[in-house]
């Protein structure tokens, strides 16, 4: 058999294997109810502004908790074992990665989407001197 075919065959086999393997790494954005059944998920939603968030860096800078509404409107407490992201209060949308543990979503990562500062900014007026 020609080596070109062997190489081609190996490449195709590798590509299929990688594709099958990689498809296990992706998932759709989940809700909190999905998180009950799956091991590690990404949940999108918005901040639950009716409930306070907790961050006391003087006590523990690696503990931040807040409440989040997922796309089904379910509110759950989320705990992040990292410092509170900047501008967290302003975020329009939140994506948390992690898993459910006793009714609490333990997140390893929190991504926030904030209104772009440099886009919607008003005209800056010179300070009257």
């Amino acid at each position: 058999m020609k080596k070109t075919y062997i190489i081609g065959f190996v490449c195709i086999a590798a590509a299929i294997a990688i594709f099958l393997n990689a498809s296990g790494d992706v998932s759709t954005y989940a809700t909190f109810s999905d998180a009950e059944t799956r091991s590690k998920v990404k949940v999108t939603g918005t901040l639950d502004l009716d409930k306070d968030f907790f961050y006391d860096p003087a006590e523990d800078p690696n503990y931040f908790s807040f409440h989040m509404l997922d796309n089904d409107g379910v509110s759950k407490k989320v705990v992040l074992t990292q410092p509170k992201p900047q501008d967290f209060e302003l975020s329009e949308q939140v994506v948390v990665t992690g898993k459910m543990k006793d009714e609490v979503f333990v997140a390893t990562e929190v991504l926030t989407k904030c209104p772009s500062k440099y886009k919607d900014e008003e005209l800056l007026l010179r300070a009257e001197s």
């Binding site: 523990d60 800078p61 690696n62 503990y63 074992t81 609490v104 333990v106």
Partner: peptide, 13 residues
């Protein structure tokens, strides 16, 4: 007591 193995605390006050 909530911390997993993969999320060690990374910062201190």
């Amino acid at each position: 007591g909530l911390v997993d193995d993969d999320s060690l605390s990374k910062v201190i006050s």
